[in-house]
């Protein structure tokens, strides 16, 4: 993908990875790139920040958050908000049109409702229906588990994962969710209990592929304005630097 390794007209070095190389992005790079990509794919600024948060949280726990976000953005871009967001009613959060929910919107909204009776409080049982790339919900569920002192179970026909129990739950949960077919119907329950905040590794590799980074960059570049002589001239000094 990289034909001009030293092209300095780009503002960060993430496009310079080679094809098969896993990219050791810092968490700040993950959060920043994913936030911009989510915005470029059509999320509001505040929701794009949530996408950056989720991807960085997963990367911090050794899971390829940027890869899952990229997969999700490719299928979600251009879809109407009403199709992506939950239609919140007690016990039933499925999307109005019955299509797969956006895991970022769902996760952020669950956090917003964390202390409200329609939300993921202790002893709740919520039908979520289909959720795209459900691994991306995990960072939000981890937040809620901590805040509400609950353990959260995400279930589907024939299986379930528990958020906030045991130190390796992110690995177990992400493995199980990654294997789910896209038509799986999910539901969520919460039980009172002390949640475990999983230990984050010191700068673990995000294991994000160069193709993913390239695609996220393509989304991110949609937030930028092509350079013009007027904009270039306006940005700098009006005096010479060679003094």
């Amino acid at each position: 993908m990289n034909t001009q390794p030293h092209d300095q007209t780009r503002g960060d070095s993430t496009p310079f990875f080679q094809d098969n190389q896993a990219a050791p992005l810092s968490r700040n790079e993950v959060a920043s790139l994913c936030m911009k990509a989510a915005r470029g794919a059509g999320m509001s600024w505040g929701m794009a920040e949530e996408a950056g948060f989720a991807a960085a949280w997963l990367a911090m726990h050794g899971i390829d958050g940027p890869g899952y976000l990229c997969t999700h953005l490719k299928q979600a871009q251009g879809r109407e908000w009403a199709e992506l967001c939950p239609s919140v009613a007690r016990g039933d959060w499925r999307a109005a049109g019955g299509r797969a929910l956006c895991p970022i919107v769902l996760g952020a909204t669950l956090c917003d409702y964390a202390a409200l009776s329609d939300g993921p409080v202790a002893d709740c049982s919520i039908t979520l229906g289909k959720v795209d790339c459900p691994i991306l919900m995990l960072p939000f569920l981890a937040n809620i588990a901590q805040k509400n002192g609950v353990s959260i179970t995400v279930s589907w026909a024939g299986g379930s994962v528990v958020v906030g129990q045991g130190s390796d739950w992110p690995e177990t949960a992400s493995g199980a969710l990654a294997a789910l077919p896209s038509e799986a119907e999910l539901s969520l329950t919460a039980q009172q209990g002390v949640a475990t905040d999983p230990p984050a590794g010191q700068s673990p590799k995000a294991n994000t592929g160069a193709d993913t980074i390239s695609m996220l960059n393509t989304f991110a570049m949609r937030t930028t304005v092509p350079a013009s002589e007027q904009s270039r001239a306006g940005a700098g000094s009006t005096l010479d630097d060679n003094d």
């Binding site: 007209t9 503002g11 960060d12 570049m221 930028t224 350079a227 270039r232 940005a235």
Partner: peptide, 9 residues
Amino acid sequence: VSEEKLEPR
């Protein structure tokens, strides 16, 4: 943000 070096303008 400019496409050029992602410079804020």
